[in-house]
């Protein structure tokens, strides 16, 4: 479903702030893979997701989604294949627009926007049903402005929007990091529900090792712009936080001490 071949990205090349954020990353995801991504700050996790989403062009390498080479496509053209949820709950929705209008925008992802009505009566009924999955009572607030919702509600809505038109690949960039623990757990639960319902191929970044182990069928660890650890299937099921910490220690050596706090 997703094939990444040896991608490189350097920010601010030739300056004192030069940062080799992606250092030859290669990754292949099978249909229906749910991959969690962990790593310390600056490891390149978000950079990897942004490279796939097309926030900017990579310096080298290729990105292929479902057999289509999207390496040179601008962000809005790739969006037809991707569902995205951002770390900042404010980022994934349009605050001044209604809940149903946001959903209608997502429903038309990758489609040319015409002069037909932006939302139909039939859709409204459909959205009412879909919002029930979130169990947040939003189904009775279709015309409420999204700006009135809490961070957790907005994140759950963004998740629903990302899956409204089935994406080839779902990109979750620490989408629970800005939420309180209870809300975070709820949004993660919804994530599992939606991913399982549509058997979505998913890439989920998290700072939380327990979440990384508990969710998905595969786990990768990144450091210094490279994938340093990749585990799946039965092996992943047996994985513990201690195993991960140990693994991290062996690969990174002394850097571990600095990143320990961030990974726990």
């Amino acid at each position: 479903m997703l094939e990444i071949k040896n991608i490189h990205k350097t920010f601010n090349p030739g300056t004192i702030n030069e940062k080799h954020a992606l250092n030859g990353v290669s990754l292949t995801l099978d249909d229906g893979d749910f991959v969690t991504v962990i790593g310390g700050n600056g490891a390149g996790k978000s950079t990897l997701l942004n490279a796939i989403a097309g926030t900017w062009q990579v310096d080298e390498g290729n990105i292929i989604i479902d057999g289509i080479d999207v390496t040179k496509l601008p962000e809005y053209r790739r969006a037809r294949y991707l569902g995205r949820v951002f770390q900042d709950p404010m980022n994934g929705t349009a605050a001044t627009m209604e809940i149903q209008e946001n959903l209608a925008l997502a429903k038309r992802r990758g489609k040319i926007r015409t002069l037909l009505p932006g939302i139909s009566g039939k859709e409204k009924e459909e959205y009412k049903e879909l919002l029930k999955i979130l169990d947040l009572g939003l189904e009775s607030r279709l015309t409420a402005k999204v700006g009135l919702l809490s961070g957790g509600q907005r994140q759950a809505l963004t998740l629903l929007m990302a899956s409204l038109k089935k994406p080839k690949l779902l990109l979750l960039d620490e989408h629970t990091a800005a939420l309180d623990p209870k809300t975070a757990a709820k949004v993660l639960e919804t994530t599992d529900t939606i991913v399982a319902r549509d058997s979505l191929t998913t890439l989920m970044i998290t700072h939380n090792m327990r979440d990384a182990i508990a969710h998905g069928n595969r786990l990768i660890m990144m450091m210094n712009g490279k994938i340093i650890f990749d585990i799946k299937g039965e092996e992943k099921k047996k994985l513990t936080v201690e195993d991960l910490l140990h693994k991290f220690e062996t690969v990174s050596g002394e850097e571990f001490a600095n990143d320990k706090a961030l990974l726990s």
Binding site: M97, E101, L105, T114, L115, P117
Partner: peptide, 20 residues
């Protein structure tokens, strides 16, 4: 309309608009 809604989204949240 679809186009008009997408215009409003562009002004409100460009990141979101591009992701859609």
């Amino acid at each position: 309309t679809e186009r008009g809604c997408s215009l409003r989204a562009t002004g409100c949240n460009e990141n979101m608009a591009k992701a859609q």
